[in-house]
Amino acid sequence: MAYSDKVVDHYENPRNVGTLDKSANDVGTGLVGAPACGDVMKLQIKVGAGGLIEDAKFKTFGCGSAIASSSLATEWIKGKTLEEAASIRNTEIAQHLSLPPVKIHCSVLAEDAIKAAVADYRAKQPKASEAAE
């Protein structure tokens, strides 16, 4: 099977591989997929004081398209607001990477990972907002 140049680029030079402190209050972690399905993505965001995503990291178990989808996702969400990040659609990722139909689920997973990370971050925040009131 031939991979697109963009998939190969992200596979060979993955952006933002790594781990943020998942217990930190300003970090949201999304862990999606399942080992049994052959894809697991962990995507983390670090949100700055202005509400912008100032850092993003990922680790992925999966095929080249899964690695590329998550790598691209971290690239796209950096500098975005939580709302902007959560509004990224899998179709945009799939289109950008020219994923074949059989690999569309990789982009779906990447979208899910962003949403899960945002949700995790938000779940950590209510205390802070209550305290402010």
């Binding site: 999606v32 080992p35 697991v40 992925t60 178990f61 689920h105």
Partner: peptide, 24 residues
């Protein structure tokens, strides 16, 4: 493996079977 969340979890001693994975 450096890029694998499963490898990282295994190194941390997390039993992967204890996690409720969402099938997709």
């Amino acid at each position: 493996r450096e890029m694998s969340p499963l490898w990282e979890m295994a190194q941390e001693g997390i039993d992967l079977r204890s996690i409720e994975w969402a099938a997709h």
